[in-house]
């Protein structure tokens, strides 16, 4: 059973809680494979998507997960809300709660915002990405996908490639996969890999070719175009030349390696279309699994006693 009413990060979860979420998600994946893809489980509850940062896939995934569980969903988009009139974050959240929200799914550009709201609200707060801190449901869906494809996580060699420093996806994945017993290595330019991670029993490679050897799972991260020109790497072209996943480099990895990407992809920058659309890619399955994992999280949080 989950013990907290909120899902704020992987850091706060125990191995048992992570496994419970993954096992429950497997049951929801069955439901999503049926003709009737909806269950009445959370009928009468209300979900509010509170996204202060642009997002298509995460917001849509949460919206659909909430609907498949029969909750009512409100999408609160910031440009049309009172936030532009200067309403404070907490006032916005309290207003949403006063409307009867049971689940508040929040994305915000500042780290720690979900944690602040969780303390102020009675509703369950689910972190859908906060600053450079965490994106827990992405890590859970990645773990679910790896477990499904490789039948285990313990002992696997998993490489995360790209902009680790600014990536909440990378951080949540590192916490999650380490708890589940995987061996993590990070590949990317020194400017994009925080020094403190090297102290966490994580191997760091600045050379892509060396890093790809013996890897079971390859997680490519999106190069955040908005960080271009800030001196982290000279140009996307050069980034692509050194750390992009091309067919020649890909041939250095194990034959049964799987390739993941949290999306949205910059085709031709961090990954070529040939690999993204190829037989070792599980990128679209990650999207489907995301739905099952988010349903599992909401279902389990609904059972936490207040």
């Amino acid at each position: 059973m989950l013990t907290k009413k909120d899902l704020l990060g992987i850091k706060e979860l125990s191995v048992e809680e992570i496994n419970l979420i993954l096992d429950t998600a497997a049951v929801f994946k069955d439901v999503l494979g049926r003709d009737i893809k909806k269950v009445p489980t959370l009928r009468g509850k209300t979900t509010v998507n509170l996204f202060f940062e642009p997002s298509t896939r995460t917001r849509t995934s949460f919206e659909l997960a909430a609907k498949r569980l029969s909750t009512d969903v409100i999408n609160f988009s910031v440009p049309t809300s009172s936030v532009v009139k200067g309403e404070s974050l907490i006032d916005t959240a309290l207003t949403v709660q006063a409307l009867g929200a049971d689940f508040i799914i929040i994305r915000h550009s500042s780290s720690g915002v979900p944690h602040l709201l969780a303390k102020k609200l009675k509703a369950s707060v689910i972190n859908a990405g906060d600053g450079t801190n965490e994106h827990p449901t992405q890590a859970l869906l990645d773990a679910f996908t790896i477990r499904e494809k490789k039948e285990k996580i313990e002992g696997l060699e998993i490489a995360i490639v790209g902009d680790i420093a600014h990536s909440r996806v990378a951080k949540s994945n590192i916490y999650c996969l380490k708890k589940l017993g995987a061996k993590i290595r990070l590949i990317g330019p020194p400017t994009l890999i925080p020094k403190e991670l090297e102290r966490m029993d994580i191997d760091v490679f600045h050379n892509m070719e060396a890093g790809l050897k013996d890897v079971d799972v390859l997680m490519m991260l999106r190069i955040q175009m908005e960080r271009q020109g800030r001196g982290f790497f000279p140009s996307t072209k050069e980034y692509s030349r050194n750390w992009g996943l091309t067919s020649e480099r890909f041939s250095l990895a194990k034959d049964d390696v799987i390739v993941m990407h949290p999306g949205p992809m910059n085709r031709g920058v961090e990954i070529t279309s040939e690999i993204a659309d190829g037989p070792r890619s599980v990128i679209l399955e990650q999207v489907t699994n995301g739905l099952a994992v988010r349903m599992a999280v909401m279902y389990l949080l609904a059972g936490v006693k207040r």
């Binding site: 059973m1 269950v39 009445p40 489980t41 959370l42 279902y299 609904a302 059972g303 936490v304 006693k305």
Partner: peptide, 12 residues
Amino acid sequence: FYRDDLNIRKEQ
């Protein structure tokens, strides 16, 4: 997923 007592049970 079809139970009517999810709100009143001690645990999920």
